[in-house]
Amino acid sequence: MSKIKKFSGSFRYTQWDPCLIIFQIVAMQSVMYLSLSLLVAIMQDLTGSTRTLDHLFEYHELHIVDNEGRAVILAFVFNAVIGAFALWMIVGRTKLCLDFSCTYHGLHLIACWYYNGSFPTTFSWWTLNIACGAIMCVAGEFLCLRTELQAIPLSNIGAKVDL
């Protein structure tokens, strides 16, 4: 959607648009869980462990005592980088990266809470999620900033230029 706008040469509508924001949140959540599931599945195959949803949501699966736990942590970190690209593609606004990154991790917290039936208290879960949130936010901001700072082409853009 942002691509179409980019070519038409006008800035995005900056008024409050609840539909857009809600669908962006839904899209972010879906993309992130999809990529996380794929990454965790790959890691599980590599370490030869069984495929289970526990690896995504269970607090006690995050540990560094064996390869299985380390692989899951690695999958989360990779997923944060993918999340940065998702922010770039779906949100595309430097100012909103922190917001959407926190929203994703907040919803993940609620999902984990529901899955485990208890609020997360393990140090590893919090450290990992805060680190992943930071990576996702900063890398996403970097990517979006690069796009936003691009020069606005003035030639062959047609009459619909909005400066």
Partner: peptide, 12 residues
């Protein structure tokens, strides 16, 4: 989420 709520508050 913040943008959504902030915008909603402003709208109200």
């Amino acid at each position: 989420m913040y943008t959504l709520l902030h915008g909603f508050y402003k709208y109200i």
